[in-house]
Amino acid sequence: MTATPVIPAEKARPARRAPRARSKSWWVPYVFLAIPLAMFLMWVIGPMIYSFYLSLTNWDGVSAPKLIGLRNYVRLFNDRVFWIAIANNAKWVVSFITAPVILGLALAMVLNRNIPGAKGIKSAFYSPYIIAPVVIGLIWGWMYQPANGLFNSVLRAVGVTDPPGWLADPRLATWCIIAAAIWRQVGYVMTLYLAGLQGVDPSLIDASMVDGANPWQAFRHVIWPLLSPVTVVVVVISIIDSLRSFDLVFVMTRGGPANSSSVLANMMYIEAFNNYKMGYGAAIAVVLFLISAGFIFIYLWQTLRSELEY
């Protein structure tokens, strides 16, 4: 994503300080980093590495862990549910980097102008994000009910004779949960974009409009490139959220019917906490981590390469 000529270079890209210019203060960044990094290493990275180790054991959470080599992984790759979960996670990723991002950005663009009632609209879209997952699961579950639910009542009213079973249908269950998740996620993405838009100088947009660009062109060539750092954040977060998606699956179907809506995080949770197979659960977590790490490498490689140009 390179900048278009419209943008003054200093606006689009921050300059980096030359590394050797002040070699006497080489220690400065380390001072800034010392406490946060130490905390993060101790409480997140440490336990994470410990759970890598656990994935090689048969730990049940109570007795002492015993090393069993790669048995958990062998079992995992032969587990049919694992592959269902992988496929479902792929559906989540694709849905999450498209629908909420587009909708959230569109809303942020609209709400950043002076539309009447903007405040109320912002709150309305953010409200799903603060409702407890249990409640979302209840309400959406009722909306999906086949016999008297909201969706099927509407469908029957418009003449559909045999409406679907939604959550009871193994082919649809995952999509049903994803729809609810998108409903929840849009406000969150909107919030991030609204913050990002604060960094965009409105005079730039006005300038491009005066130059005869229509709103779409102004957006495409001025705002979108300026928002690219936010978009990167949003996409990375969406990928991570979709891979970690768990609470809605757990409350809406618990992975059912017959594991058809299972995702890796949900499967991990059930194995580790319901079945007392901490080792096996850790193995699932490691696989999930490696998949996410793949995406993050792509991100880092992309951004750091473009940043290196300076």
Partner: peptide, 11 residues
């Protein structure tokens, strides 16, 4: 009942 899996037991 049809689509039993769509319901929680109390539903």
């Amino acid at each position: 009942i049809e689509d039993a899996a769509a319901y929680d037991w109390q539903d």
